[in-house]
């Protein structure tokens, strides 16, 4: 479908470049090295970070922010390592993901991927305990992802019953992992989240 120039948002590139990590977006000269080396393309052939960057530069804000492919980046840094223009592709995509999350919070966008829910649930553990607490993470993430507590617990059991038993038997889910490892000065970490957000 041809691009409708009147629907483009010329400020979108600045919006990205003003986000931490998005600074080098405009250096991209569309060589496609990022996409050719990306391991995701071997599994999802349509995945194309080069295209996401070009659409961003053109100002196709809505299309970019609602693109489900934004959420399957592994942050493996292969693109970043190979980019001849130092675009720091992983960080640029991260900046775009954060803009999409803000749009969703403002009620202007619906993100289908559960990844923002996962990232938030992960960071909430840090905020509370200063360290990752796996069980707390799963207990927050699954109900949110599935839409209700019961459905969430059912999905969690399906994914993790065998795994949990295996880890328990091997002594990897001992008492140390069942309870959260809380740091002493949690207030210092809480302050970080208060001032920066997640």
């Amino acid at each position: 479908m041809p691009i409708k120039t009147w629907e483009l948002d010329p400020n979108f590139r600045n919006e990205i470049m003003n986000e931490p990590g998005g600074e080098h977006l405009a250096s991209c000269f569309q060589c496609s090295t990022c996409t050719l080396g990306c391991p995701i393309t071997e599994i999802v052939p349509s995945y194309n970070p080069r295209k996401i960057i070009q659409m961003s530069l053109l100002g196709m804000r809505e299309e970019v922010l609602s693109n489900p492919d934004l959420w399957i980046c592994l942050i493996c840094q292969t693109c970043t390592a190979r980019c001849p223009q130092d675009v720091v592709v992983s960080d640029v995509l991260g900046a775009i993901r954060r803009i999409a999350e803000k749009e969703e919070e403002a009620g202007k966008l619906k993100i289908e991927s559960p990844r923002p829910l996962f990232d938030k649930a992960f960071l909430h553990q840090l905020e509370k305990y200063g360290r990752l607490y796996d069980i707390g993470l799963a207990k927050e993430y699954y109900p949110k992802k599935e839409g209700s507590f019961i459905k969430g617990m059912r999905a969690m059991m399906k994914d993790y019953k065998d795994f949990g038993m295996r880890m328990f038997k091997k002594g990897k889910m001992g008492p140390k992992a069942i309870l959260p490892e809380k740091i002493k000065r949690t207030g210092e970490v809480k302050k970080i989240f208060e001032k920066i957000g997640d």
Binding site: D91, G94, F122, L126, I183, R185, V189, I196
Partner: peptide, 20 residues
């Protein structure tokens, strides 16, 4: 002493990573 989580791959905001 009292180390905290590095933010792993889930903290996407570089400023948050630097602070943690």
């Amino acid at each position: 002493e009292d180390w905290n989580c590095c933010g792993a791959a889930e903290a996407e905001n570089p400023i948050l990573v630097y602070a943690l």
